[in-house]
Design a protein around this nucleic acid. Sequence first.
DNA 1: CGAGCCCGCGCG
DNA 2: AAAGCGCGCGGGCTCG
Length: 579
Amino acid sequence: MYILVTGSPSERIRVRELDSAGVPAGVDRVLSTAQFRALVQERDQDGVRWVWEDTARSYPVVLRGSIRVQRCHDLRLCHAILRNSALTGGSALANAPASRWDAPAAAAPVESRGTTLFDMDLGVSEDDRSEPADDDALAEFQAQLQAVRASADPGRLRLLLAAESVGALIAAEMQFAGLPWRSAIHDSLLTAELGPRVAAGIRPARLEELAVRIRTELGDREVNPDSPPDLLRALNRAGLAVATTRAWELEKLEHPVIEPLLRYKKLSRLLAANGWFWMESWIIDDRFHPEYLPGGVVTGRWATRGGGALQLPKQIRGAVVADPGWSFVVADAAQLEPRILAALSTDTAMAAAGRGTDLYAGIVASGVVETRAHAKVAMLGAMYGATSGESGRLLPRLARAYPRALALTEAAARAGERGDVVSTRLGRSSPRPGVDWQDDQARASEAGASPADERRARSQARDWGRFTRNFIVQGSAAEWALCWMAEIRKGLRTLTGPPGPAARGGAGTRTPPSPFADTPHLVFFLHDEVIVHTPAALAGEVSRIVTEAASTAGRLLFGDFPVDFPLTCVVVDSYADAK
DNA sequence: CGAGCCCGCGCG
DNA sequence: AAAGCGCGCGGGCTCG
């Protein structure tokens, strides 16, 4: 049973019951926000799937009512998958001209600098007024159901669409709940590294001291260490033969300027990326609310927007501290991508190397290479397409030990080099290379092609082959992660915290109504890692749920194939104490 | 003055 | 010259 939701709180919310074939089975009703929330509360228990255009626009109004939904179908995200998938290539949906469903996600309605999400009416935007009638959403949903029904593998696609959609729910919930972030601790971490807080545009004391030392050591009173071209000229004048100012290049040099310069780079990065300005911009009431973008990467990984949530440096993770009486369960999947590759290729030898142990250690124990570091660099080389260096040299040994796995990555690379499409386990397909790529390939195969044309085409073909080689692994790993989170979310719903209001916030802090106030919930996700914020008393139960969810995700994707997905899972008060 | 590029570096 | 994948973001800098 489905309920189609269209419109927005700014005008009207229209709901329409659909039967399991997507055919309207009831009257079309127009509801106020309050009535809509009441409907969600009443009907969500029935196993209803809410069908809407964009979870990021429709779901926050539910969350602000302190309620959640269990299942949804995100028309925009599912459209993108079905439009591209090799499994639905013959469908009407895939062959129709581009429409508004192919447009990128609408700009985020949720709070950014200076506005908090509970005093803002989400979903209100100019373009709501120009939205086509609901019939368009209904037709789109029916076209999607039809594309799946007629596809080469409806089961996998249904799982993928459900996983993508629940991912969108989780993304909205995590943005709403926010990652606990103590500004006071962040400030003291910055002060310890950089010196006392200063106004924007002023160098903090530690940085200024280092800048002076850099100028002295280079004998150049003018050089600006923030300007790569300027710095490069100064380094060359001082007799240092470098072509770039990258830290890993500078590390190789012997010169008194190197040590202060590397420290300067490290600290100026901290200040620019996660300094006081960042803190004031992104931390609201001791919570970090990045916007997650499910499906934001073509492989199916999530992207984020705002605050650089994909790159929180280890230096400042000490500011991520659980509320009083609460804990974090921090879990990450160990060697996820090689395990995914083993399962994708049904390489039982590689899967066996990871059974009950660190997969890289298992490769060493099997006598394939001598050290864990070699095993890791060789595996990464296989998945990323390395051809040279240590990784390239070790690849033949890996190929002898794990021929099935390596054959799969090679086949994916060859497909990409030809311009063909590859697909993940559940059926997300790679994009085709762009017209420039096609033109360059065509030119190189013409009679009058110059050696330069041929070189260029070969190089671009190999580039695209490395992309498709990695696509199948990265994309299938992203699917595993979505299933993992979905199972975690499902498991957490069975837990209830101690009675009473949430512990969050101090005296005088406004606390918005929240469906997460007294219950364990996901607060962060990064490719193969999750953080659950939970009442401390439930941390053990949460750990069990998170661990079992990993096994369930493996079975959902790979059935009975014997591959393990072990986690490192710890209970901590501070993110800095995880791994 | 803003738009858009490159550089460099943080994360998986 | 050849080159391991995927991201986001800030600063410098150039250009219009």
